[in-house]
Simulated scan of single mutants.
Amino acid sequence: MEIHQLKTFMTVAREGSISRAAETLCLSQPAVSAHIKAIEDTFGLILFERTPRGMSLTREGEQLLRKTEQTLGAHQDLLTEAARLKGRLNGKLHIGNSSTASTEALGRLMIALSERCPEVELVVQHGNTAELLKGIRNGSLDAGFYNDSHLPDEDISSLEVGRFSIFLAAPPGLVDTSEPVDWQALAQLPWICPTVQSCCKQAADHLFEAHNIRPQRIISIDREAVTRTLIGGGVGVGLLHADSAREAQLRGEIEIICEAQKHVRVLFAHTRKRVHDPLLMMARSILQTEHG
């Protein structure tokens, strides 16, 4: 029985599905099934019940999962201690980056790591905030950058690495920006808003509540670049991060109606149980120094 088979067992238990575990581990489904069978054959135990809804741990499986987590934790501690004794950090760091988060902090981290820890390999994966938090929790990601969207994060340790504001923007000439904002008139226009929980969705919801409006039509777009293109194309009004809004304004693509949210925090986060991980401690140190 190998360490990678134990990692597969833990991932299937967390995901509750062979297919989702295969996707998380970047393995084929037959390979994942073979790992589980090898462990069951070794122990002479049935670890999962195969149901129409997926993989459900048996009582024996639940007991062995706790021991597996301890074993894998001890294995990681062993690797960490060996790296410390050698006097340098090495290994692979899987970092998630939200598609709407600022890339500045990620860039700073990549440059500093390449200079200070050349033997550390940095692997970047993109996704939305919910996807990144899931990856951080299930172990497929070591840490991630995302915009604070106030999702439940009791088990997450985060560090603020940047801030930005959000603006409500319109196509040139569609709204008279020299006059006070007519919110009832804006409600008659199409709004381009994210559907997933995000900083721009929160900003939009706040505007709707604060001004007691509900747009007659909402176009659901989860990518800021697409939102910017649609606003510039005259489709409707929408929300843009400050840098994108100002660039688009300078290019004459959009006009800014108002500031929708003054401060949105960009966070670097990982699980609290990994707060003493040497690679993550180094990453936090770099980001604190650069941001501070």
Rank of each mutant, 00 (worst) to 15 (best):
P152A: 12
D41H: 08
E115P: 09
A21I: 09
G107C: 01
L79N: 01
S244P: 02
F43Q: 13
A22L: 07
V235F: 09
L239T: 07
G232S: 12
R214C: 07
H206P: 03
T68R: 01
C199D: 01
S285D: 12
D77Y: 13
Q249P: 01
A260H: 10
E60K: 04
M282D: 10
G252V: 11
A260I: 05
W191P: 04
G54P: 04
L141M: 04
G96W: 01
E290K: 06
S198G: 12
P118T: 02
I231P: 02
S149H: 04
F9Q: 09
I221N: 07
Q63T: 10
D205C: 10
I39T: 01
G139M: 06
N128Q: 03
R20P: 07
L57T: 05
L89G: 08
L79V: 00
S17A: 08
C200W: 07
R50W: 09
T195Y: 13
R50A: 13
I3S: 14
P171W: 11
S19Y: 13
P172F: 05
L109S: 10
R251D: 15
I231N: 00
W183T: 07
E2A: 10
K86E: 15
D205K: 03
I221A: 02
I257E: 01
L189Q: 03
P30A: 11
P152W: 06
T103K: 06
L279P: 11
L133Y: 00
F167W: 08
A245T: 05
A130G: 00
E255V: 14
S149A: 15
R88W: 02
E2K: 15
